[in-house]
Write a protein that binds this DNA or RNA. Structure first.
Ligand SMILES: [Mn+2]
Ligand SMILES: [Mn+2]
Ligand SMILES: [Zn+2]
Ligand SMILES: [Zn+2]
Lengths: 137, 137
DNA sequence: TTACATTTTTGTAATGATTACAAATTTATA
DNA sequence: TATAAATTTGTAATCATTACAAAAATGTAA
């Protein structure tokens, strides 16, 4: 994908093969992966891939503002290519993380009680609709 | 403090000395401590105190609903005695965590897009008012 | 009080995610 | 090609947290 390469070049990151594959995974799969879950998917395809490369690459992407990261229920870092601020829902049963389309502008104003707000994160926790159905049976 | 003891007894936790001291610290200091920061304060006063006891105790308190916990910027768990849902502000400079009095009822409704919402967490990130002043000099 | 069971606490070792670091490999450049 | 720079790898270290078994404290019955 040339779109992937462009994203990297535009941010001043040279588009190595590994970096492109990792970013491609993030762009195509909106599943809030961890470093380890990316590794489990990509390692079979790229036999020489090292987990350190994944950590390094993700850190670079975050610092350049290509992706964002957040702590999951288990203190493991999850990564997200989607950049519009959006709400995350954590399911306590299946541990999956859902994006909510919920429109959200409570913090449009960027200064609250004297603090300068640069970013925000809204996390909901509960039982997802799939797990609710399973319970019903 | 007898108030501390009552909190424990009401939740079915026997009020041992260590548990009371740890809960007292949480109730009196609204500073979102970590297990380690509690240890650094209490260990000098209670020479035999073990860090494992702190971890065990905090875990018990969370599971019994006496305190809540959340991941900080550095993936370390912070603990909070305050129970009304409230907004947290993380300062990127001084790493401190502030409670915001911001009234907040966007998620009063407990079912969103089919998911059952049991709890929520709003985290803001930026530069706190103290650090903003320091920058101004 | 003593003897025994239960609870609490301790200390050390294990775990698991992440990072540091130096060597090896690849890529770019002259 | 030769050399320098960038990238990747593999291993070891770090750090928060947990597991676990022994030690200490507490409760209870005789
Ligand atoms: Mn998302
Ligand atoms: Mn708080
Ligand atoms: Zn679920
Ligand atoms: Zn600050």
């Amino acid at each position: 994908m040339d779109k992937i390469k462009d994203i990297l070049v535009n941010k001043g990151i040279s588009p190595s093969y590994h970096r492109m594959k990792i970013l491609e995974y993030l762009v195509k799969n909106n599943n809030h992966p961890t470093a380890d879950s990316i590794y489990r998917v990509l390692a079979p395809q790229i036999p020489t891939l090292s987990k350190t490369t994944i950590y390094n690459t993700l850190k670079t992407f975050v610092s350049k503002g290509i992706i964002s990261s957040f702590a999951g229920l288990n203190q493991e870092l999850h990564y997200d290519y989607k950049f519009e601020p959006h709400v995350h829902f954590f399911c306590r049963k299946c541990q999956r993380i859902f994006d909510l389309a919920e429109p959200f502008d409570c913090f449009k104003d960027k200064s609250i009680e004297g603090h300068l707000v640069l970013s925000h994160q809204i996390n909901l926790e509960g039982i997802c609709h799939n797990c609710l159905q399973d319970e019903g049976e």
